[in-house]
Simulated assay, not measured.
Amino acid sequence: MMGSLENRVAIVTGAGRGIGRSHALLLASRGVAVVVNDLGGSNSGEGADAGPAQGVVDEIVAAGGRAVVNTDSVSDWESAKKLVDQAVSEFGGLDVVVNNAGILRDGFIAGLDESQWDLVVDVHLKGHFNLLHHAGAFWKEESKAGRQPTAAVVNTASASGTFSVLPGQANYGAAKAGIAALTLVAAAELERYGVRVNAIAPVARTRLTLATPGMGAIFAEEVPEGEFDAFAPENISPVVAFLATPGCPLNGKVLAVQGGAISLLQGWTFADTVETDGPWDVDELPALLGHWG
C-alpha cells in the first residue's frame, strides 16, 4: 500500500515561484502541512522579498490547507537548522524535505569569477547538504528514540551536469551533478533511519530555464489554449508527491521528469576498456587510447 500524504509535514525550498510553488500547492492539496521556504531573491540570488513565499502560503490557507512562511537562505548552515526546527515547532514533526531552491550565475570558465562559482555551489549543493544534514540528524534521533520515521527527501538535480552539457554552466552543472551523487550517498546512509532519498532532474518552464542561453526560446513557445503544455511546472509535482508518499518503494533513484515523460537515469558506465598485463607504457597509449578521441 502506498499510503496517504494526509497529515505529513514537508519543507519545500524555493517554493515561492515556479516548480517549487507547484510542489507546495500540490502537497498542501493532499493534506500536507508545508513550510514554504523562499528567500525571494532574483535569478542570480540577489535581494530578498517575503512576498513570493507569503503569496503561496496565503493561497494554501485560502484553500483550507496548512502552511507557514520561511524566508531564510538554505545556503546558511544555521538557517537550514531553523527550517527544520520551524517545521517541528509549527506542525509537530517533519516527514518530507523537497530541496528545490536554486539560482543561476552563468558564465564561461575563463571569465567566471570566484563569487559566481561560490554562490551557485552554495545555494545548490551546499544548500541541499545543509538541509539534508539537519533533517537527517532529526530523523536519526527520532529513530533512536523508537519513533522510526517514514520520511522522504526529494532533491533537485538537472539535465545540466547529469546527461547533457551546456556551455556557460560549469558552476550550475557541477553543483547539479554533485546533487545526484549526494542523493545516492544519502540514500544509502539514511535508509536505516527510515528515510528514502531520491532526486528529480526536471525540465519545465521557470524563471531559470527562460534565462538559460539557448533554451529560453524553447520554453517560451506559446501553447494553444486547451492543448497539453509539456513544459508546465505543474507536470513535475505529481512525481514529487509520489516520492514523498510513505509507501513509495524508490530509494537512491534519479528521475528525469517533464510533461509526458519520466526516465530513470543511470550514472557513469564503462563505455570501453583496454587492459595490460604489466605497467602502462606512455609510448604505447596513443595506439591504445587514441581512437577514443
Rank of each mutant, 00 (worst) to 15 (best):
P249F: 11
D95Q: 08
L104N: 13
A80S: 03
L5C: 02
G107V: 00
L26K: 09
E6D: 04
F219S: 03
N235D: 03
V203R: 01
G47K: 06
I236C: 14
V98M: 05
T162F: 03
E114P: 00
V239W: 02
A188E: 15
A28T: 05
I19C: 03
V121G: 07
G40P: 06
V165Q: 04
I19D: 04
N130M: 12
G31F: 07
T245K: 11
A204P: 03
L250F: 15
G278P: 09
V153C: 09
G173V: 05
R105Y: 07
D122C: 06
A177Q: 11
V203L: 14
V153Q: 14
S89E: 09
A220W: 04
G214K: 06
R192F: 08
P249D: 03
D283G: 01
D38V: 07
G290N: 10
G216M: 09
Q54K: 15
D277F: 04
D272M: 02
G65L: 11
P279Q: 14
A33L: 05
F129Q: 10
G161R: 15
P233R: 07
L26V: 03
G161I: 13
G16E: 14
M1E: 14
G259Q: 08
R105A: 02
F270T: 11
A87P: 14
L243V: 10
K253C: 12
L25A: 04
V121Q: 12
N37M: 03
A151S: 06
G146E: 04
F219I: 07
A177H: 08
P224E: 07
V68T: 00
D277L: 13
D118I: 09
D49N: 15
V9N: 08
L265D: 00
P238Q: 08
R196V: 06
A152N: 03
Q266D: 11
L250K: 06
Q169F: 12
D118P: 08
S29N: 06
V32G: 06
L132E: 04
